[in-house]
């Protein structure tokens, strides 16, 4: 039995893995069958409610490069779903299409029942977003920025809402400071406050705890869980922090090279790959690929659309 090392964060651990014929690593996890079905809910009539977010055969193609390649999954209402992957895996592109900022080449994305390519303005009032790639006007103070965005989202009783967010996110000393002069961590807190200003039903977060220290990051995860519980809202977040995803998320979707390669609950992923931490699962998949015949995402795609999109169909984003 050959041994491979798997990175466990603090150092390397030696883990036994079966080696297949020809000396190649068997990508099946020890002790699990390749065809073990995922407990990720299937999209069919037995679901109690329409998912908050549905991605069907979502594809974004730039010339011959597929930034997102035939991604299908859904985000059940009231859940927190983590989207993880290496840099360039397609997470930000996927999120941009979910927010309607980017038009897909093929496929569709629906949020709260609305097609984000054609009818996003019907639902944007009930969504919000936070990302390190997007800034708020630096010359405006924190209070002014929250004022402007609160009005854009039609927040009732805005002054009281800003007061609540100030208390929740500890913005008291920052309110009258220009946003551009804040530290990276302060900017993250302010942008998250702005992301929650309209109490969104669907919240999309891109690296929400980047630039936060450990204390603040832990506190923020607690806030997000409390927010979800209080408002039954749906949260989709992308992150490089595997511990955060493991602690926070109900389901985890793993992307690589634009494709969705694995999806399941954190506990399922740990069991399938016989790992103690999600980062070990991620590293294993990065090196050895996913389980044989991952079932859940493709079953969902077939159930939703009945077919894969043929590549020779005219793309939706053709000029």
């Amino acid at each position: 039995m050959n041994q491979i090392r798997s990175f466990s964060g603090a150092g390397y651990e030696i883990v036994d893995r079966p080696v297949g014929p020809g000396g190649s690593y068997d990508s099946s996890p020890v002790g699990a069958t390749p065809h073990e079905p995922s407990h990720y809910p299937r999209l069919h009539a037995t679901l109690k409610a329409t998912p908050a977010v549905i991605l069907e055969n979502l594809t974004k193609k730039y010339k011959s490069f597929y930034a997102v390649d035939d991604v299908s999954f859904f985000v059940p209402e009231g859940t927190i779903v983590g989207l993880i992957g290496a840099n360039g895996a397609g997470k930000t592109t996927t999120i941009a299409m979910i927010m309607g900022l980017l038009i897909p080449s093929y496929g569709s994305v629906r949020v709260l029942g609305h097609d984000m390519t054609r009818a996003r303005h019907k639902v944007l009032k009930r969504m919000n977003f936070q990302s390190p790639y997007v800034a708020m006007p630096a010359q405006l103070t924190v209070r002014q920025n929250l004022n402007v965005f609160g009005r854009l989202y039609g927040v009732p009783d805005l002054k009281a809402r800003i007061g609540e967010l100030t208390d929740e996110f500890g913005l008291g000393e920052l309110l009258n400071l220009e946003t551009g002069r804040l530290s990276a961590g302060q900017k993250t807190r302010v942008s998250l406050a702005k992301a929650l200003i309209n109490k969104p039903a669907v919240l999309v977060l891109d690296e929400p705890t980047a630039s936060l220290d450990l204390d603040r990051a832990e506190w923020l995860r607690g806030r997000l869980q409390a927010y979800r519980s209080q408002h039954q809202s749906t949260i989709l977040l992308s992150s490089h922090n595997m511990l955060e995803v493991e602690q926070l998320c109900d389901y985890v979707a793993i992307m690589s090279s634009g494709r969705l390669i694995e999806i399941g609950t954190p506990a399922e992923l740990l069991r399938w790959y016989q790992c103690g931490r999600l980062e070990e699962v991620f590293l294993y998949i990065s090196r050895c690929g996913p389980r044989l015949e991952p079932t859940a995402p493709y079953d969902a795609a077939v159930q939703l659309s009945g077919r894969r999109p043929p590549r020779d169909e005219p793309p939706l984003d053709a000029d």
Binding site: M99, G100, L101, H121, L124, K125, M127, F129, S131, Y133, V134, A135, M136, P137, A138, Q139, F149, L152, Y153, G154
Partner: peptide
């Protein structure tokens, strides 16, 4: 101010 995306993702 890199705010165009925020505005385009707002109502």
């Amino acid at each position: 101010s890199r705010n165009v995306a925020s505005l385009m993702m707002s109502p």
